[in-house]
Design a protein around this nucleic acid. Sequence first.
DNA 1: GACAAAAGTTAGAGAGGGCTAATATTACAG
DNA 2: CTGTAATATTAGCCCTCTCTAACTTTTGTC
Lengths: 155, 155
Amino acid sequence: MSEKLSASLEDYLEAIASIAGSSGETHAADIADSLGVSRPSVTVALRALASRGMINYRPYSTVSLTEDGRIRAASVLRKHRIVSRFFSEILGADEELADSAACRVEHAIGEEITDRLVEFLAFIDNCPMAARGGFQYESENRKEFREKAADYGKK
Amino acid sequence: MSEKLSASLEDYLEAIASIAGSSGETHAADIADSLGVSRPSVTVALRALASRGMINYRPYSTVSLTEDGRIRAASVLRKHRIVSRFFSEILGADEELADSAACRVEHAIGEEITDRLVEFLAFIDNCPMAARGGFQYESENRKEFREKAADYGKK
DNA sequence: GACAAAAGTTAGAGAGGGCTAATATTACAG
DNA sequence: CTGTAATATTAGCCCTCTCTAACTTTTGTC
């Protein structure tokens, strides 16, 4: 269905979408800065993305997403947001940790798992016991659950 | 703290641990079969794992995990189990899908996220509304949550 | 104990992703 | 309208991971 893209290329696509924002145009240098990568690496990635129909690209020119590129970037960004949110809001992880883990997990899960996670997040917001404060903040509970957790084979 | 291993090398370690089981010894051919990879690829990987102190390895001989290797393999296997379980039991994904996604996610999350997920799983087992049947099977609820889910920006 | 079959390794190549240094292009200031 | 600074690309190298084909070592059977 949708083109196969490596995690690396998805990261580039994601960066392009984030930078482009409303203007729609991106400079290679911004992509390099945003990803902490050298400019030559960006050039190579742009060629790869262009060959897969994800971006409009011509040498020495600005970059913009194609319709396919927009769709794919939106998919990756959505996965990122959902997963990061799950890690921080539900599991109670530090935002920075949640975000960095989401950066990797976003390439590892498909649409179905993401859809289900979205539904679960909506559900949990309505679950009086499980919502924030339920799991995260009631230390009495947490101690109890930490004991139960042994079943799952900690380290 | 623990050696940096690529996702690929973690997969090899995981396979070795799974195959070795109690006997502790593994043959390269079994690793190749288990991972669906060629034998030469296994040789290369074994050298890399040996150089990182994860396995005991000498050419033309069987392979076993070192203490470090056992620890690391257990960590990866634990992440796999937890994540797969979350995907299938909580999110309600098909076991096969859950497992294949877990194969990738296991390399993308650290110990802290995993610990928190373990606790959450234990917690959810005790949450009358959220436990199985709560989220997965009550279609009335699901419809409602699916509507709420729009907030999270579906596709 | 020799000799095939099985198991493992080496050799060589290619894809993918990254880097620095050098080169080319574009853009803007004078 | 020309030249320099900023930007982008090419060239060449490295590393990881994979493969097939060819070679070596081990194993086990007669």
